[in-house]
């Protein structure tokens, strides 16, 4: 609880540091923050072209025979994955990146992963905005009703942020103590990418490997990806209300456990940060 109090008490500093962080990342490049937005958009385009035209993923058919264009399916899920992978990477390395704040001055290290995550969120919000707009336009053209599902976005984006704040408290502490953790995180991000049903529909598993399908539905990453996706694919019963909210309860239970453990590891190790950096 000290962590939450700390972040709240220092919210002005958190906000200023995240703005500084955002500007720093691109300050040495002539085109500056433009790159922050260009990189994810280029990635999206490449994946879309490959999967739509080369691998011919095609439309997704919903239970009531509605055709969801692949681009809607893909952009909504992929933008959430970008938020998760970029946030996880930058917040995990943040204490190392900001070693001068740990070693040269008395700084509240609790807030370092938080402002790294927030700074990353600035780009992600724009990506969410662009992906969301494209999806909404497609929905309107095809005639898929936007409301009320589109309101899911207002719940799932803050939920993703809270989950990542909890998770990166753990990973940032570990990566600061042992640099190898960063390599593990990179592998982990690849695993999330392929197992969170970003480019395929989790229903495929129900026929071939139902157990795996069920387990993956309880993964917080799948939950977040589907949560944002279903804001634009009205036909589905959203994952957050499916099975009387079982997946939602699972998501918050996992988030709480990760937070409690991450908090324990971070607090236990933070006094050593200055020694190991």
């Amino acid at each position: 609880m000290d962590f939450i109090k700390n972040v709240f008490k220092n919210r002005r500093l958190v906000w200023q540091m995240s703005r500084n962080d955002f500007r720093n990342k691109f300050s040495s490049m002539s085109l500056g923050t433009l790159w922050g937005f260009a990189v994810p958009l280029v990635f999206m385009t490449i994946y879309y072209v490959i999967f739509n035209y080369v691998l011919k993923s095609g439309d997704i058919i919903t239970p009531s025979e509605l055709k969801i264009p692949f681009i809607v399916w893909f952009l909504s899920g992929f933008s959430m994955w970008l938020f998760i992978s970029d946030g996880l990477t930058s917040a995990t390395t943040s204490v190392r990146t900001y070693s001068y704040l740990v070693k040269k001055t008395v700084f509240n290290v609790d807030i370092i992963p938080v402002f790294a995550l927030l700074s990353n969120g600035i780009v992600s919000l724009v990506v969410f905005g662009i992906a969301g707009t494209v999806c909404a336009v497609y929905d309107i053209v095809i005639g898929i009703p936007l409301f009320p599902n589109v309101l899911l976005a207002l719940y799932i984006i803050p939920a993703a942020f809270i989950f990542l704040a909890a998770l990166t408290r753990l990973t940032a502490a570990l990566a600061t103590k042992v640099a190898d953790v960063m390599a593990v995180i990179n592998i982990f991000i690849q695993i999330i990418f392929w197992f969170s049903a970003i480019l395929w529909d989790i229903k495929i598993l129900d026929a071939k490997a139902p157990a795996l399908g069920q387990i993956l539905r309880f993964s917080p990453f799948t939950y977040l990806v589907y949560g944002f996706r279903q804001a634009f694919t009205a036909d589905y019963l959203p994952i957050i209300t499916a099975k009387y909210g079982l997946y939602t309860a699972g998501f918050w239970a996992i988030t709480l456990l990760v937070f409690l453990y991450g908090n324990y590891v971070f607090n236990k190790n933070k006094k050593d940060f200055a020694d190991v950096l």
Binding site: N20, N24, S27, Y100, L101, T105
Partner: peptide, 20 residues
């Protein structure tokens, strides 16, 4: 030294230092 970010300008560092 002090908690300066090498990528920021002198002025920006004055502000960040004060904010910290």
């Amino acid at each position: 030294g002090t908690a300066f970010n090498p990528e920021l300008t002198g002025i920006e560092n004055i502000y960040q230092h004060g904010q910290i």
